[in-house]
């Protein structure tokens, strides 16, 4: 082979490489965008689950907000106190005071207290049961307990109790909203832990009609409305509704005369002493026991 051809190709390719190398070097210097290195560092300290519970789209936008000083580190509900401390130390700020938000279930109708009228056979999902007429639970507003929320929870924070009610572990709950979206009956709400007053019911019946389908249903007796601070609780469509904008006025007095324990004063975890009703050792629920499929 002609040595000249060899040399010329080396020269051309080498020249091209040199030209582009210089171009890249120049443009990299000219077009440089400075990014706060702390963003990356803070982002690495955050849990990285992108759950959105802090109100930001993911962990990176939250890291930016932390550095801009728009949010306190405690706003991340996934981190424990140690991790929050690490972030605060790194940024040289206070951890901040954000009362912990957790998912609360607005139903206490476990199998023994809210009996099923019929057995349900079909797709094992709450949404599917509700799509075909509620699956046969006596109270059509109540939890059907077919695990849509426990499946939706990414943090293992919800466990189905043997009596058919999901129990939320506040330690693990990050208030990510997944269970709220998964529940076809809209029974989950996100609520700060220091909201102690809660109506664990969505039943729209009143009087005996309500207690016939569930022993712990709100029967619209209005006692809590009278006992609470003026305007805190109102009766809407036969259901006691708490105005959480006025929650500062909450008082244990409101729950004292409730005949069914539908409204309760909650400290810490929900159903901490077990879900209502005694275990019946797996006896099938349902009085007339018709099948639904």
């Amino acid at each position: 082979m002609d040595p000249l051809t060899l040399l010329s190709s080396v020269a051309i390719l080498g020249g091209l490489g040199l030209t582009f190398g210089v171009l890249i070097a120049v443009s990299s210097a000219k077009l440089k965008v400075w990014e706060d290195p702390r963003i990356d560092a803070v982002n690495n300290l955050l849990p990285g689950v992108n759950c959105g519970a802090c109100g930001y789209v993911g962990c990176l936008p939250f890291a930016e907000a932390l550095i801009a000083g728009d949010a306190p580190p405690a706003q991340c509900t996934v981190m424990g106190p140690d991790e929050t401390g690490d972030v605060a130390d790194y940024l040289g700020v206070e951890t901040g005071q954000v009362s912990q938000v957790v998912a609360r279930l607005l139903c206490a109708g476990s199998a023994p207290v809210a009996p099923w009228k019929a057995d349900y056979f079909g797709v094992e999902s709450c949404a599917a049961a509700v799509a075909v007429g509620g699956g046969g639970k006596g109270c059509p507003w109540g939890c059907v307990g077919l695990d849509d929320c426990t499946v939706a929870c990414d943090f293992d924070a919800i466990e189905m109790s043997p009596l058919g009610l999901p129990v939320v572990d506040p330690e693990k709950c990050t208030a990510c909203n997944d269970c709220v979206e998964a529940c076809p009956l809209d029974l989950f709400v996100l609520m700060p832990m220091d909201h102690h007053l809660i109506v664990q019911c969505k039943n729209l019946l009143d009087g005996e009609a309500a207690t016939d389908v569930c022993a712990v249903a709100c029967n619209a007796c209005r006692r809590c409305v009278q006992d609470a601070e003026e305007g805190l609780i109102s009766m809407q469509s036969n259901l006691a509704v708490i105005d959480y904008d006025n929650i500062a006025a909450q008082n244990e007095k409101a729950v004292e005369r409730c005949p069914t324990n539908a409204i309760i004063w909650l400290e810490g975890a929900q159903f901490a002493e077990g879900v209502p009703g005694k275990s019946t050792d797996g006896a099938p629920p349902g009085a007339e026991s018709l099948a639904m499929s």
């Binding site: 099923w116 019929a118 075909v132 007429g133 046969g136 007339e288 018709l290 099948a291 639904m292 499929s293």
Partner: peptide, 19 residues
């Protein structure tokens, strides 16, 4: 030995949980 009561036919009907 009744196990299910349906309003409508067995193919498209609705199972009744309440008599």
């Amino acid at each position: 030995d009744v196990n299910e009561i349906v309003f409508g036919g067995p193919m498209m009907g609705f199972s009744q949980p309440d008599l």
